[in-house]
């Protein structure tokens, strides 16, 4: 039955709805927020068609923070899921659309209230990433607790249990659809999120619709084994989504997919959050600085005597 190994997965989609992303999308020929949403919804439907075990969560990220727009009923706690099942009765895509429009309207309202201070700003990518990882982690904890509980209440078998942890986890993926440029000041937080994703076995896929490549997303995909893609034809987004990002991790090994050809590994310095090619690294805590300092700003190690390693 190796052929029929369960290929269901949990997919969390991050949609960038920050003003700068929306402005950029509007200026891209053949693509606007409207068409992006349409294509995204078809992808959402296609993803849930592929496997009945597939679970989905959609988040939006704006300058004011990250919001959960939609998640499958199997992602909710049992009580809330029952309630949702009773009230629901529309397609998942409709729910996604409702959530997305709410988030976008919320962002626009916040922008207006803030007197246009958000204009041109990017999304809080680092907070969105950590929010999604927390969401995935909470799902895992709940699944583990449920498995342990089932074993206890089963009662028939011998008691005690470490088996719940051993049970195979559903593979998890993040898909980031962003159009805003990187914000170097978020470098440390983003890298920390990427490392925790790497550690918990979450794949990060990225589809960059904005101008230029995103160093953050390239590194995220590279480190977690995901795919980074900058579509040549953003107006054909659906085709990219369906043929590349709908693939689960195990099927990817059989198909030829766009690879991470060149990854921009440049770091941001810890002192001014500038992206640098060459810098100074603290020999004790590996903090990165763009200029030679008398002492490390992070751990306080004394560099006097020119001991900062170049």
């Amino acid at each position: 039955m190796a052929e029929f190994a369960d290929d269901s997965s949990l997919l969390a989609i991050l949609l960038d709805v920050s003003p700068s992303a929306v402005v950029h999308l509007a200026s891209t020929p053949g693509l606007s927020l409207q068409t992006l949403l349409e294509q995204l919804l078809i992808f959402v439907n296609a993803f849930s068609l592929l496997n009945d075990g597939n679970r989905l969560a959609v988040f939006t990220a704006g300058p004011s923070g990250c919001q959960l727009a939609y998640c499958s009923s199997s992602c909710l706690p049992p009580a809330a899921a029952a309630e949702a099942a009773a009230e629901r009765g529309t397609a998942p895509s409709a729910e996604v659309l409702k959530g997305l429009w709410q988030a976008i309207a919320g962002t626009a309202a916040a922008e207006k209230a803030g007197g246009g201070t958000f204009a041109g700003t990017s999304c809080q990518f680092s907070s969105a990433l950590s929010r999604m990882l927390c969401f995935i982690n909470s799902l895992q904890c709940r699944a583990a607790a449920a498995a342990a509980g089932a074993e206890l209440s089963g009662g028939a078998g011998p008691s005690g249990g470490a088996s719940a942890a051993v049970r195979k986890q559903q593979p998890m993926r993040l898909l980031c659809l962003t159009a805003a440029p990187d914000v170097p000041s978020q470098y440390i937080a983003v890298m920390n999120s990427i490392f925790s994703a790497q550690r918990s076995g979450v794949l990060i896929d990225a589809c960059q619709l904005g101008v230029g490549d995103s160093s953050f997303l390239q590194q995220a995909a590279h480190l977690t084994g995901g795919i980074y893609l900058k579509p040549d034809k953003p107006q054909a987004l659906l085709q990219y989504l369906n043929s590349v990002f709908s693939l689960d991790a195990s099927t990817r090994q059989y198909l030829r997919l766009p690879g991470n050809t060149r990854v921009d590994f440049r770091a941001s310095c810890f002192c001014h959050k500038r992206q640098i090619d060459l810098g100074f690294v603290c020999s004790a805590c590996l903090s990165i600085f763009c200029e030679q300092l008398p002492a490390c700003l992070t751990c306080g190690t004394d560099f006097q005597g020119g001991q900062g390693k170049k």
Binding site: E3, F4, D7, A46, L49, L50, N51, D52, L238, Q239, N242, S243, S246, L247, D248, S250, T251, Y254, L255
Partner: peptide, 21 residues
């Protein structure tokens, strides 16, 4: 149609998905 799609091996499903559009 949906049930047939789901009862195929993963790779065959993705081929159909690529063909669908």
């Amino acid at each position: 149609v949906v049930a047939i799609l789901r009862s195929l091996p993963p790779l065959a499903r993705h081929i159909l998905l690529r063909f669908s559009c």
